[in-house]
Amino acid sequence: MPWGFLLLAFAHIPPNGDFVSVLLFGGMAALAGLGLPLLDRKARRRLGESAWREASGESPALPFGSVHSRSRVGWRWRPLAACAAVALALYVWFVLQGHEALIGVDPLAGFKF
């Protein structure tokens, strides 16, 4: 979830660029960016050092990093590819129509002639 907030914030700072947007999305980015190591530290205290090393060794900090670190991927790519295709289709719809319909602002307004 912090990665999602971080991406959302970084995607909204450049197109908006006004002071209020920079405060809102910059604060969101700072909270998400600082939240990642703080959540790790909290989990380390809760689990203990040995359990934390075991758990953190299996889960990378980057999203989908464990898929790339395994030597045998084979069939594991199919569900990931299907989810990625659905996510891409939803993203394209949201950028082209959904953002304006749901939020009221066309993100591509500056690109239309």
Results as ranks from 00 to 15, higher is better:
87 A>V: 03
23 L>P: 04
51 A>L: 12
3 W>N: 12
72 R>C: 00
14 P>N: 08
4 G>D: 10
49 E>Y: 06
18 D>P: 03
55 A>R: 13
29 A>I: 01
37 P>A: 05
76 R>T: 07
75 W>N: 06
6 L>Q: 09
85 A>Y: 03
26 G>V: 00
30 A>D: 05
72 R>D: 11
87 A>E: 11
102 L>H: 07
24 L>W: 03
50 S>D: 12
4 G>C: 10
44 R>G: 01
83 C>G: 14
15 P>N: 13
82 A>T: 06
80 L>K: 03
59 S>P: 02
33 G>A: 08
111 F>A: 13
47 L>F: 07
61 A>G: 11
5 F>N: 05
1 M>Q: 11
41 R>C: 04
68 H>F: 14
16 N>K: 15
11 A>P: 03
10 F>Q: 03
112 K>E: 14
67 V>R: 04
13 I>M: 15
47 L>N: 01
12 H>L: 15
7 L>F: 15
1 M>R: 12
26 G>Q: 01
6 L>T: 03
90 L>V: 11
91 Y>T: 14
62 L>C: 03
25 F>W: 10
19 F>C: 04
112 K>N: 06
36 L>W: 04
41 R>N: 08
111 F>P: 00
79 P>M: 01
33 G>E: 00
69 S>I: 07
85 A>D: 07
14 P>H: 04
20 V>H: 10
44 R>I: 02
18 D>K: 09
64 F>C: 04
108 L>W: 05
7 L>V: 14
94 F>Y: 14
111 F>Q: 08
110 G>D: 07
86 V>S: 10
96 L>W: 11
105 V>Q: 11
13 I>A: 08
63 P>A: 03
73 V>K: 12
81 A>F: 11
60 P>H: 09
49 E>D: 12
11 A>K: 08
38 L>I: 11
26 G>C: 02
50 S>I: 03
8 L>T: 15
80 L>Q: 11
79 P>Q: 07
92 V>W: 06
69 S>Q: 15
17 G>S: 12
48 G>Q: 01
1 M>H: 15
70 R>H: 04
70 R>G: 01
71 S>H: 13
44 R>T: 05
52 W>I: 00
72 R>K: 05
82 A>E: 09
81 A>S: 13
88 L>Q: 05
5 F>V: 09
48 G>F: 01
29 A>Q: 00
39 L>W: 07
36 L>H: 05
58 E>C: 02
102 L>Q: 08
75 W>R: 14
30 A>V: 12
12 H>N: 15
15 P>I: 08
68 H>L: 15
50 S>E: 15
74 G>E: 07
47 L>Y: 04
3 W>D: 13
111 F>Y: 14
35 G>I: 02
72 R>M: 08
47 L>Q: 02
60 P>V: 03
